[in-house]
Design a protein around this nucleic acid. Sequence first.
DNA 1: TTATTATTCAAACGCTTGTTTCAAACCATA
DNA 2: TATGGTTTGAAACAAGCGTTTGAATAATAA
Lengths: 219, 219
Amino acid sequence: MEDISKKTDDTKGRLIEAAGEVFAHHGFRSATVREICSRAGANVAAVNYHFRDKEGLYVAVLEHSLQSATRKYPPDLGLRDQATPEEKLRTFIHSFLLRILGEGVPAWHGKLMAREIADPTDALGRVVQSSIRPLHMYLASILSDLLKEGKPAEGEERDVIFLCAMSIVGQCLQHFTGRRVIAALRPKSFNPADIERIADHITRFSLAGIRGLRAGGSL
Amino acid sequence: MEDISKKTDDTKGRLIEAAGEVFAHHGFRSATVREICSRAGANVAAVNYHFRDKEGLYVAVLEHSLQSATRKYPPDLGLRDQATPEEKLRTFIHSFLLRILGEGVPAWHGKLMAREIADPTDALGRVVQSSIRPLHMYLASILSDLLKEGKPAEGEERDVIFLCAMSIVGQCLQHFTGRRVIAALRPKSFNPADIERIADHITRFSLAGIRGLRAGGSL
DNA sequence: TTATTATTCAAACGCTTGTTTCAAACCATA
DNA sequence: TATGGTTTGAAACAAGCGTTTGAATAATAA
Protein backbone atom coordinates (compact mmCIF):
# COMPACT_ATOMS: atom_id res chain seq x y z
CA MET A 1 0.00 0.00 0.00
CA GLU A 2 2.74 2.42 0.93
CA ASP A 3 4.15 4.39 -1.94
CA ILE A 4 6.75 6.82 -0.65
CA SER A 5 8.48 7.16 -4.00
CA LYS A 6 6.83 10.34 -5.23
CA LYS A 7 8.50 13.27 -6.92
CA THR A 8 7.34 15.95 -4.51
CA ASP A 9 8.94 15.75 -1.10
CA ASP A 10 6.51 18.09 0.63
CA THR A 11 3.68 16.30 2.37
CA LYS A 12 1.03 18.63 1.01
CA GLY A 13 1.94 17.84 -2.58
CA ARG A 14 2.17 14.11 -1.95
CA LEU A 15 -1.25 14.15 -0.34
CA ILE A 16 -2.81 15.81 -3.39
CA GLU A 17 -1.13 13.29 -5.69
CA ALA A 18 -2.31 10.33 -3.64
CA ALA A 19 -5.77 11.78 -3.09
CA GLY A 20 -6.25 12.37 -6.80
CA GLU A 21 -5.74 8.72 -7.56
CA VAL A 22 -7.89 7.50 -4.71
CA PHE A 23 -10.75 9.95 -5.29
CA ALA A 24 -10.79 9.26 -9.03
CA HIS A 25 -10.77 5.52 -8.41
CA HIS A 26 -13.16 5.17 -5.49
CA GLY A 27 -15.08 8.44 -5.35
CA PHE A 28 -15.18 10.93 -2.51
CA ARG A 29 -17.38 8.94 -0.18
CA SER A 30 -15.70 5.56 -0.54
CA ALA A 31 -12.22 7.02 -0.35
CA THR A 32 -10.68 6.92 3.12
CA VAL A 33 -8.17 9.40 4.46
CA ARG A 34 -6.23 6.47 5.87
CA GLU A 35 -5.65 4.99 2.41
CA ILE A 36 -4.72 8.39 1.04
CA CYS A 37 -2.24 9.06 3.80
CA SER A 38 -0.84 5.57 3.53
CA ARG A 39 -0.20 6.06 -0.18
CA ALA A 40 1.34 9.46 0.47
CA GLY A 41 3.54 8.09 3.23
CA ALA A 42 2.04 10.55 5.66
CA ASN A 43 0.38 10.40 9.02
CA VAL A 44 -3.42 10.24 9.30
CA ALA A 45 -3.49 13.67 10.88
CA ALA A 46 -1.74 15.25 7.90
CA VAL A 47 -4.97 15.77 5.95
CA ASN A 48 -6.57 17.75 8.75
CA TYR A 49 -3.42 19.75 9.39
CA HIS A 50 -2.83 20.78 5.75
CA PHE A 51 -6.38 20.90 4.38
CA ARG A 52 -8.63 21.35 7.43
CA ASP A 53 -10.65 18.25 6.59
CA LYS A 54 -11.30 15.58 3.96
CA GLU A 55 -13.45 17.91 1.90
CA GLY A 56 -10.75 20.57 1.90
CA LEU A 57 -8.36 18.05 0.39
CA TYR A 58 -11.03 17.11 -2.15
CA VAL A 59 -11.43 20.73 -3.22
CA ALA A 60 -7.66 21.08 -3.53
CA VAL A 61 -7.57 18.01 -5.76
CA LEU A 62 -10.40 19.39 -7.89
CA GLU A 63 -8.55 22.66 -8.45
CA HIS A 64 -5.23 20.96 -9.10
CA SER A 65 -6.66 18.45 -11.55
CA LEU A 66 -8.78 21.04 -13.36
CA GLN A 67 -5.60 22.86 -14.35
CA SER A 68 -3.97 19.67 -15.54
CA ALA A 69 -7.04 18.68 -17.54
CA THR A 70 -7.62 21.99 -19.32
CA ARG A 71 -3.92 22.13 -20.14
CA LYS A 72 -3.85 18.69 -21.74
CA TYR A 73 -7.44 18.40 -22.98
CA PRO A 74 -8.88 21.80 -23.95
CA PRO A 75 -12.52 21.38 -25.04
CA ASP A 76 -11.61 22.39 -28.60
CA LEU A 77 -8.39 20.34 -28.51
CA GLY A 78 -6.58 23.17 -30.27
CA LEU A 79 -9.00 23.21 -33.16
CA ARG A 80 -8.76 26.15 -35.50
CA ASP A 81 -11.46 28.76 -34.98
CA GLN A 82 -13.02 28.53 -38.42
CA ALA A 83 -13.72 24.85 -38.06
CA THR A 84 -17.19 23.69 -39.02
CA PRO A 85 -19.71 22.93 -36.26
CA GLU A 86 -19.45 19.26 -37.26
CA GLU A 87 -15.69 19.29 -36.68
CA LYS A 88 -16.17 21.14 -33.41
CA LEU A 89 -18.67 18.56 -32.17
CA ARG A 90 -16.41 15.68 -33.13
CA THR A 91 -13.53 17.30 -31.29
CA PHE A 92 -15.63 18.08 -28.23
CA ILE A 93 -16.78 14.47 -27.94
CA HIS A 94 -13.25 13.17 -28.40
CA SER A 95 -11.88 15.57 -25.80
CA PHE A 96 -14.66 14.74 -23.34
CA LEU A 97 -14.06 11.01 -23.67
CA LEU A 98 -10.33 11.47 -23.20
CA ARG A 99 -11.06 13.44 -20.04
CA ILE A 100 -13.19 10.73 -18.45
CA LEU A 101 -11.69 7.54 -19.88
CA GLY A 102 -8.02 8.51 -20.03
CA GLU A 103 -5.30 7.54 -17.59
CA GLY A 104 -3.12 9.58 -15.27
CA VAL A 105 -3.33 13.03 -13.73
CA PRO A 106 -5.06 14.87 -16.62
CA ALA A 107 -7.92 12.36 -16.56
CA TRP A 108 -8.55 12.74 -12.82
CA HIS A 109 -10.73 15.75 -13.28
CA GLY A 110 -13.01 14.16 -15.85
CA LYS A 111 -13.59 11.18 -13.62
CA LEU A 112 -14.24 13.39 -10.61
CA MET A 113 -16.66 15.46 -12.69
CA ALA A 114 -18.45 12.34 -13.89
CA ARG A 115 -18.70 11.13 -10.29
CA GLU A 116 -20.12 14.48 -9.17
CA ILE A 117 -22.80 14.18 -11.85
CA ALA A 118 -23.80 10.65 -10.89
CA ASP A 119 -23.34 10.98 -7.12
CA PRO A 120 -22.98 14.62 -6.08
CA THR A 121 -21.12 15.76 -2.98
CA ASP A 122 -21.26 19.12 -1.22
CA ALA A 123 -18.73 20.32 -3.80
CA LEU A 124 -21.19 19.94 -6.69
CA GLY A 125 -21.90 23.66 -6.82
CA ARG A 126 -18.20 24.43 -7.23
CA VAL A 127 -17.79 21.85 -9.98
CA VAL A 128 -20.84 23.09 -11.84
CA GLN A 129 -19.55 26.65 -11.75
CA SER A 130 -15.93 25.91 -12.60
CA SER A 131 -16.27 23.06 -15.08
CA ILE A 132 -19.66 21.64 -15.94
CA ARG A 133 -21.47 24.85 -16.85
CA PRO A 134 -18.68 26.21 -19.06
CA LEU A 135 -18.44 22.91 -20.90
CA HIS A 136 -22.20 22.80 -21.25
CA MET A 137 -22.36 26.32 -22.66
CA TYR A 138 -19.68 25.51 -25.21
CA LEU A 139 -21.51 22.37 -26.30
CA ALA A 140 -24.79 24.28 -26.47
CA SER A 141 -23.24 26.87 -28.76
CA ILE A 142 -22.05 24.16 -31.14
CA LEU A 143 -25.49 22.56 -31.09
CA SER A 144 -27.14 25.90 -31.72
CA ASP A 145 -25.07 26.29 -34.87
CA LEU A 146 -25.89 22.77 -35.99
CA LEU A 147 -29.61 23.03 -35.35
CA LYS A 148 -30.63 26.41 -36.66
CA GLU A 149 -28.54 26.20 -39.80
CA GLY A 150 -30.63 28.18 -42.25
CA LYS A 151 -33.67 27.93 -40.04
CA PRO A 152 -34.96 30.70 -37.76
CA ALA A 153 -34.61 30.08 -34.01
CA GLU A 154 -37.90 29.14 -32.39
CA GLY A 155 -38.80 29.56 -28.74
CA GLU A 156 -38.74 25.81 -28.13
CA GLU A 157 -35.22 25.78 -29.57
CA ARG A 158 -33.63 26.10 -26.12
CA ASP A 159 -35.23 22.87 -24.93
CA VAL A 160 -34.13 21.03 -28.06
CA ILE A 161 -30.56 22.24 -27.61
CA PHE A 162 -30.63 21.19 -23.97
CA LEU A 163 -32.02 17.74 -24.77
CA CYS A 164 -29.38 17.24 -27.46
CA ALA A 165 -26.66 18.23 -25.00
CA MET A 166 -27.99 15.68 -22.51
CA SER A 167 -28.10 13.06 -25.25
CA ILE A 168 -24.46 13.61 -26.16
CA VAL A 169 -23.15 13.90 -22.61
CA GLY A 170 -25.24 10.92 -21.55
CA GLN A 171 -23.75 8.78 -24.29
CA CYS A 172 -20.21 9.73 -23.27
CA LEU A 173 -20.75 9.31 -19.53
CA GLN A 174 -22.27 5.88 -20.04
CA HIS A 175 -18.87 4.55 -21.06
CA PHE A 176 -17.42 5.64 -17.70
CA THR A 177 -20.37 5.35 -15.33
CA GLY A 178 -21.59 2.08 -16.80
CA ARG A 179 -18.19 0.49 -17.41
CA ARG A 180 -18.87 -2.47 -15.12
CA VAL A 181 -22.02 -3.44 -17.00
CA ILE A 182 -20.34 -2.76 -20.33
CA ALA A 183 -17.67 -5.23 -19.34
CA ALA A 184 -20.39 -7.78 -18.61
CA LEU A 185 -22.46 -7.27 -21.77
CA ARG A 186 -19.99 -6.33 -24.47
CA PRO A 187 -19.23 -8.61 -27.42
CA LYS A 188 -15.67 -9.90 -27.32
CA SER A 189 -14.82 -7.87 -30.38
CA PHE A 190 -15.62 -4.56 -28.64
CA ASN A 191 -12.70 -2.92 -26.82
CA PRO A 192 -13.92 -0.54 -24.07
CA ALA A 193 -10.53 1.23 -24.07
CA ASP A 194 -10.69 2.16 -27.76
CA ILE A 195 -11.58 5.80 -27.20
CA GLU A 196 -11.28 6.73 -30.88
CA ARG A 197 -13.78 4.06 -31.88
CA ILE A 198 -16.27 5.22 -29.25
CA ALA A 199 -15.79 8.87 -30.13
CA ASP A 200 -16.35 8.11 -33.78
CA HIS A 201 -19.57 6.24 -33.07
CA ILE A 202 -21.03 8.87 -30.76
CA THR A 203 -20.12 11.62 -33.22
CA ARG A 204 -21.77 9.98 -36.20
CA PHE A 205 -24.77 8.84 -34.19
CA SER A 206 -25.28 12.31 -32.76
CA LEU A 207 -24.68 14.29 -35.94
CA ALA A 208 -27.26 12.16 -37.71
CA GLY A 209 -29.59 12.51 -34.73
CA ILE A 210 -29.30 16.29 -34.80
CA ARG A 211 -29.91 16.40 -38.53
CA GLY A 212 -32.94 14.20 -38.03
CA LEU A 213 -34.36 16.61 -35.45
CA ARG A 214 -33.68 19.54 -37.75
CA ALA A 215 -35.55 17.78 -40.50
CA GLY A 216 -38.22 17.84 -37.82
CA GLY A 217 -41.72 16.48 -38.10
CA SER A 218 -42.99 12.99 -37.64
CA LEU A 219 -41.62 9.88 -35.89
CA MET B 1 -39.76 9.25 10.45
CA GLU B 2 -42.00 6.50 11.78
CA ASP B 3 -44.62 5.27 9.39
CA ILE B 4 -46.53 2.45 10.96
CA SER B 5 -49.59 2.89 8.74
CA LYS B 6 -48.78 0.29 6.10
CA LYS B 7 -51.18 -2.16 4.55
CA THR B 8 -49.23 -5.29 5.42
CA ASP B 9 -49.19 -6.11 9.10
CA ASP B 10 -46.39 -8.65 8.92
CA THR B 11 -43.00 -7.22 9.69
CA LYS B 12 -41.34 -8.93 6.75
CA GLY B 13 -43.65 -7.24 4.27
CA ARG B 14 -43.36 -3.84 5.92
CA LEU B 15 -39.58 -4.11 5.82
CA ILE B 16 -39.59 -4.79 2.08
CA GLU B 17 -41.93 -1.85 1.50
CA ALA B 18 -39.81 0.52 3.55
CA ALA B 19 -36.55 -0.80 2.17
CA GLY B 20 -37.74 -0.35 -1.40
CA GLU B 21 -38.30 3.34 -0.85
CA VAL B 22 -35.05 3.88 1.01
CA PHE B 23 -32.88 1.84 -1.37
CA ALA B 24 -34.42 3.51 -4.42
CA HIS B 25 -33.93 6.94 -2.90
CA HIS B 26 -30.50 6.65 -1.30
CA GLY B 27 -28.93 3.58 -2.89
CA PHE B 28 -27.78 0.43 -1.14
CA ARG B 29 -24.65 1.86 0.46
CA SER B 30 -26.11 5.11 1.78
CA ALA B 31 -29.26 3.44 3.04
CA THR B 32 -29.16 2.48 6.72
CA VAL B 33 -30.99 -0.42 8.27
CA ARG B 34 -31.93 1.90 11.10
CA GLU B 35 -33.86 4.22 8.80
CA ILE B 36 -35.51 1.28 7.07
CA CYS B 37 -36.59 -0.27 10.36
CA SER B 38 -37.75 3.06 11.66
CA ARG B 39 -39.96 3.57 8.61
CA ALA B 40 -41.27 0.04 8.90
CA GLY B 41 -41.98 0.47 12.59
CA ALA B 42 -39.73 -2.45 13.38
CA ASN B 43 -36.77 -3.10 15.60
CA VAL B 44 -33.22 -2.80 14.24
CA ALA B 45 -32.69 -6.51 14.67
CA ALA B 46 -35.65 -7.34 12.43
CA VAL B 47 -33.62 -7.13 9.24
CA ASN B 48 -31.09 -9.67 10.42
CA TYR B 49 -33.78 -11.96 11.78
CA HIS B 50 -35.94 -12.01 8.64
CA PHE B 51 -33.34 -11.54 5.88
CA ARG B 52 -30.04 -12.66 7.44
CA ASP B 53 -28.39 -9.31 6.67
CA LYS B 54 -28.78 -6.02 4.85
CA GLU B 55 -27.86 -7.56 1.53
CA GLY B 56 -30.45 -10.28 1.97
CA LEU B 57 -33.10 -7.62 2.37
CA TYR B 58 -31.75 -5.87 -0.71
CA VAL B 59 -32.07 -9.03 -2.79
CA ALA B 60 -35.61 -9.52 -1.53
CA VAL B 61 -36.47 -5.97 -2.57
CA LEU B 62 -34.92 -6.57 -5.99
CA GLU B 63 -37.03 -9.67 -6.56
CA HIS B 64 -40.20 -8.08 -5.24
CA SER B 65 -39.82 -4.91 -7.30
CA LEU B 66 -38.85 -6.79 -10.46
CA GLN B 67 -42.25 -8.47 -10.43
CA SER B 68 -44.03 -5.19 -9.90
CA ALA B 69 -42.05 -3.52 -12.69
CA THR B 70 -42.50 -6.18 -15.34
CA ARG B 71 -46.19 -6.32 -14.51
CA LYS B 72 -46.74 -2.59 -14.93
CA TYR B 73 -44.02 -1.76 -17.48
CA PRO B 74 -43.35 -4.69 -19.83
CA PRO B 75 -40.52 -3.78 -22.22
CA ASP B 76 -42.92 -3.85 -25.17
CA LEU B 77 -45.67 -2.11 -23.17
CA GLY B 78 -48.22 -4.48 -24.69
CA LEU B 79 -47.29 -3.59 -28.22
CA ARG B 80 -48.66 -5.82 -30.93
CA ASP B 81 -46.18 -8.29 -32.32
CA GLN B 82 -46.24 -7.05 -35.91
CA ALA B 83 -45.21 -3.57 -34.89
CA THR B 84 -42.43 -1.99 -36.93
CA PRO B 85 -38.93 -1.83 -35.41
CA GLU B 86 -39.37 1.94 -35.17
CA GLU B 87 -42.51 1.53 -33.06
CA LYS B 88 -40.79 -1.10 -30.95
CA LEU B 89 -37.86 1.21 -30.26
CA ARG B 90 -40.11 4.10 -29.34
CA THR B 91 -42.03 1.88 -26.95
CA PHE B 92 -38.87 0.43 -25.42
CA ILE B 93 -37.49 3.90 -24.70
CA HIS B 94 -40.78 5.05 -23.25
CA SER B 95 -41.05 1.98 -21.05
CA PHE B 96 -37.45 2.28 -19.91
CA LEU B 97 -37.89 5.92 -18.93
CA LEU B 98 -41.09 5.12 -17.04
CA ARG B 99 -39.18 2.44 -15.16
CA ILE B 100 -36.42 4.74 -13.97
CA LEU B 101 -38.19 8.10 -13.72
CA GLY B 102 -41.61 6.98 -12.54
CA GLU B 103 -42.96 7.10 -9.01
CA GLY B 104 -44.05 4.38 -6.62
CA VAL B 105 -43.40 0.68 -6.30
CA PRO B 106 -43.19 -0.22 -10.03
CA ALA B 107 -40.43 2.37 -10.52
CA TRP B 108 -38.28 1.04 -7.68
CA HIS B 109 -36.71 -1.61 -9.81
CA GLY B 110 -35.67 0.76 -12.58
CA LYS B 111 -34.00 3.06 -10.10
CA LEU B 112 -32.26 0.18 -8.38
CA MET B 113 -31.11 -1.12 -11.76
CA ALA B 114 -29.80 2.32 -12.73
CA ARG B 115 -27.96 2.53 -9.42
CA GLU B 116 -26.44 -0.91 -9.94
CA ILE B 117 -25.14 0.25 -13.32
CA ALA B 118 -23.60 3.45 -11.96
CA ASP B 119 -22.41 2.10 -8.61
CA PRO B 120 -22.53 -1.69 -8.53
CA THR B 121 -22.95 -3.75 -5.37
CA ASP B 122 -22.26 -7.43 -4.81
CA ALA B 123 -25.72 -8.05 -6.29
CA LEU B 124 -24.73 -6.75 -9.73
CA GLY B 125 -24.37 -10.26 -11.13
CA ARG B 126 -27.92 -11.13 -10.11
CA VAL B 127 -29.31 -7.92 -11.60
CA VAL B 128 -27.45 -8.44 -14.86
CA GLN B 129 -28.80 -11.96 -15.18
CA SER B 130 -32.37 -11.24 -14.16
CA SER B 131 -32.96 -7.83 -15.69
CA ILE B 132 -30.18 -6.03 -17.50
CA ARG B 133 -29.14 -8.74 -19.92
CA PRO B 134 -32.70 -9.64 -20.99
CA LEU B 135 -33.49 -5.97 -21.59
CA HIS B 136 -30.25 -5.56 -23.48
CA MET B 137 -30.93 -8.55 -25.69
CA TYR B 138 -34.39 -7.28 -26.52
CA LEU B 139 -33.02 -3.84 -27.43
CA ALA B 140 -30.24 -5.43 -29.48
CA SER B 141 -32.77 -7.42 -31.49
CA ILE B 142 -34.70 -4.25 -32.31
CA LEU B 143 -31.48 -2.51 -33.31
CA SER B 144 -30.46 -5.45 -35.45
CA ASP B 145 -33.71 -5.11 -37.39
CA LEU B 146 -33.24 -1.38 -37.76
CA LEU B 147 -29.62 -1.56 -38.85
CA LYS B 148 -29.48 -4.39 -41.35
CA GLU B 149 -32.69 -3.46 -43.12
CA GLY B 150 -31.94 -4.58 -46.66
CA LYS B 151 -28.24 -4.77 -45.96
CA PRO B 152 -26.31 -7.96 -45.29
CA ALA B 153 -24.98 -8.40 -41.75
CA GLU B 154 -21.26 -7.74 -41.51
CA GLY B 155 -18.90 -9.03 -38.85
CA GLU B 156 -18.48 -5.60 -37.30
CA GLU B 157 -22.25 -5.41 -37.01
CA ARG B 158 -22.24 -6.73 -33.45
CA ASP B 159 -20.09 -3.84 -32.25
CA VAL B 160 -22.32 -1.32 -33.98
CA ILE B 161 -25.40 -2.81 -32.39
CA PHE B 162 -23.71 -2.77 -28.99
CA LEU B 163 -22.60 0.84 -29.36
CA CYS B 164 -26.10 1.88 -30.41
CA ALA B 165 -27.54 0.11 -27.40
CA MET B 166 -25.13 1.98 -25.13
CA SER B 167 -26.05 5.24 -26.84
CA ILE B 168 -29.75 4.73 -26.22
CA VAL B 169 -29.44 3.42 -22.68
CA GLY B 170 -26.90 6.14 -21.86
CA GLN B 171 -29.28 8.84 -23.01
CA CYS B 172 -32.09 7.43 -20.87
CA LEU B 173 -29.98 6.87 -17.76
CA GLN B 174 -28.62 10.39 -17.94
CA HIS B 175 -32.05 11.73 -17.01
CA PHE B 176 -31.98 9.71 -13.79
CA THR B 177 -28.28 9.53 -12.92
CA GLY B 178 -27.61 13.15 -13.82
CA ARG B 179 -30.83 14.62 -12.47
CA ARG B 180 -29.06 16.89 -9.99
CA VAL B 181 -26.97 18.52 -12.70
CA ILE B 182 -29.94 18.66 -15.05
CA ALA B 183 -31.79 20.62 -12.38
CA ALA B 184 -28.86 23.03 -12.23
CA LEU B 185 -28.38 23.51 -15.98
CA ARG B 186 -31.83 23.19 -17.50
CA PRO B 187 -33.63 26.11 -19.11
CA LYS B 188 -36.72 27.11 -17.15
CA SER B 189 -38.92 25.91 -19.97
CA PHE B 190 -37.67 22.33 -19.70
CA ASN B 191 -39.60 20.08 -17.35
CA PRO B 192 -37.48 17.14 -16.12
CA ALA B 193 -40.63 15.22 -15.14
CA ASP B 194 -42.13 15.32 -18.65
CA ILE B 195 -41.31 11.73 -19.53
CA GLU B 196 -43.23 11.79 -22.82
CA ARG B 197 -41.24 14.80 -24.03
CA ILE B 198 -37.92 13.12 -23.15
CA ALA B 199 -38.98 9.81 -24.67
CA ASP B 200 -39.98 11.56 -27.86
CA HIS B 201 -36.67 13.37 -28.12
CA ILE B 202 -34.52 10.30 -27.45
CA THR B 203 -36.56 8.25 -29.92
CA ARG B 204 -36.26 10.74 -32.76
CA PHE B 205 -32.61 11.47 -32.00
CA SER B 206 -31.76 7.78 -31.92
CA LEU B 207 -33.78 6.69 -34.93
CA ALA B 208 -32.08 9.37 -37.00
CA GLY B 209 -28.72 8.38 -35.50
CA ILE B 210 -29.25 4.75 -36.47
CA ARG B 211 -30.31 5.69 -39.97
CA GLY B 212 -27.23 7.84 -40.24
CA LEU B 213 -25.01 4.91 -39.28
CA ARG B 214 -26.80 2.66 -41.75
CA ALA B 215 -26.17 5.21 -44.47
CA GLY B 216 -22.63 4.58 -43.31
CA GLY B 217 -19.49 6.19 -44.62
CA SER B 218 -17.95 9.52 -43.86
CA LEU B 219 -18.20 11.98 -40.95
C1' DT C 1 -53.41 -25.83 29.97
C1' DT C 2 -48.79 -26.73 28.96
C1' DA C 3 -44.76 -27.09 26.09
C1' DT C 4 -42.50 -25.51 22.18
C1' DT C 5 -41.46 -22.51 18.73
C1' DA C 6 -41.41 -18.00 16.52
C1' DT C 7 -40.95 -13.20 16.92
C1' DT C 8 -39.90 -8.74 19.10
C1' DC C 9 -37.15 -5.62 21.77
C1' DA C 10 -33.55 -2.77 24.24
C1' DA C 11 -29.05 -2.97 24.74
C1' DA C 12 -24.58 -3.68 23.59
C1' DC C 13 -20.73 -5.32 20.52
C1' DG C 14 -17.17 -4.80 17.11
C1' DC C 15 -15.62 -2.30 13.44
C1' DT C 16 -14.62 1.66 10.46
C1' DT C 17 -14.91 6.31 9.75
C1' DG C 18 -13.08 11.41 10.12
C1' DT C 19 -11.10 14.09 13.48
C1' DT C 20 -8.46 15.73 17.63
C1' DT C 21 -4.83 15.72 21.00
C1' DC C 22 -0.37 16.85 22.50
C1' DA C 23 4.30 15.67 22.95
C1' DA C 24 8.35 14.99 20.01
C1' DA C 25 11.06 16.27 16.09
C1' DC C 26 12.36 19.65 12.83
C1' DC C 27 13.97 24.00 11.17
C1' DA C 28 14.84 28.62 10.27
C1' DT C 29 16.39 32.85 12.56
C1' DA C 30 18.68 35.85 16.06
C1' DT D 1 23.87 27.84 20.37
C1' DA D 2 19.43 29.14 22.01
C1' DT D 3 14.53 30.24 20.60
C1' DG D 4 9.99 30.09 18.56
C1' DG D 5 7.07 28.68 15.10
C1' DT D 6 6.12 24.66 11.92
C1' DT D 7 5.41 20.03 11.01
C1' DT D 8 5.10 15.19 12.26
C1' DG D 9 3.47 11.10 14.78
C1' DA D 10 1.22 7.57 17.81
C1' DA D 11 -2.66 7.35 20.19
C1' DA D 12 -7.13 8.19 21.38
C1' DC D 13 -11.85 10.12 20.56
C1' DA D 14 -16.62 10.40 19.05
C1' DA D 15 -20.00 9.07 15.91
C1' DG D 16 -22.18 5.95 12.76
C1' DC D 17 -22.54 1.58 10.85
C1' DG D 18 -24.28 -3.56 10.52
C1' DT D 19 -24.80 -7.10 13.53
C1' DT D 20 -25.41 -10.00 17.81
C1' DT D 21 -27.22 -11.11 22.24
C1' DG D 22 -30.48 -12.84 25.43
C1' DA D 23 -34.48 -12.04 27.87
C1' DA D 24 -39.45 -11.00 27.23
C1' DT D 25 -43.48 -11.69 24.60
C1' DA D 26 -46.61 -13.81 21.19
C1' DA D 27 -48.19 -17.56 18.63
C1' DT D 28 -48.78 -22.37 17.89
C1' DA D 29 -49.11 -27.35 18.92
C1' DA D 30 -49.71 -31.23 22.03
